[in-house]
Simulated scan of single mutants.
Amino acid sequence: MGMRIISQSPEHTVIEMPISGNTQPQGLLHGGASAALAETAASHSAILHAQRLFGENAVAVGVELNISHLKAGRGLLIRATAEALHLGRSSTVHTVRITDEDHQLIAIARVSNRVLNK
């Protein structure tokens, strides 16, 4: 899918993805691709939080994804910015804003992860 991590921390992760190769038959950004990008950004943050709590073998697994597609994705790339709403001992919740190159909001998501100490 061509995702590229720009920055990452438990509180804030930014990932970019090209639109090319991630489109529906009409040539617009595929909603499933933007959902995958949102979950990836939130999950990177959640894994870092889990490892901060329990060490490098800890993991985080997705338990809920809710996304609203607000505008057609056009252009070269989109950017997902995950912001922590809750960083607990057993769960995390992040809001993810997906924007285009002009900083226009394309989609917004909420992602919940379960923190597991392996």
Rank of each mutant, 00 (worst) to 15 (best):
H12Y: 13
I67P: 04
L48P: 03
K71T: 02
Q24V: 07
I78M: 12
R114Y: 09
S68L: 04
R79Q: 13
H86K: 15
G88F: 02
T23S: 07
R79Y: 00
E16P: 02
S20A: 15
E101I: 11
I6Q: 13
A82I: 08
R52M: 12
T99Y: 00
R52Q: 15
A33T: 03
L65A: 06
A72K: 10
M3A: 14
R89E: 07
K118D: 06
L76Q: 14
I67R: 09
R4V: 14
S34T: 14
K118E: 01
I78S: 04
T95W: 00
S112I: 01
N22K: 07
N113E: 09
A46F: 10
L29S: 03
Q26R: 05
E64Q: 15
E16V: 11
S43Y: 04
R97S: 12
H69P: 06
L70R: 12
L53T: 06
G2D: 14
H69R: 06
S20K: 14
A50M: 12
Q8V: 11
R4I: 13
A80D: 01
K71Y: 00
V111G: 00
I6K: 14
M17S: 11
L53H: 08
I15V: 15
D100A: 10
Q24S: 12
K118Y: 00
V61C: 01
L37K: 10
A58V: 10
K118R: 12
L65G: 05
H94M: 10
A82W: 06
S68N: 15
D100G: 14
G62E: 05
Q104L: 13
V14T: 14
A38Q: 09
T92D: 04
F54H: 15
N113R: 03
A84M: 08
V59K: 11
E64W: 01
M17Q: 14
D102N: 15
L87P: 08
A107R: 04
L105E: 11
H86V: 13
L87K: 10
I47R: 13
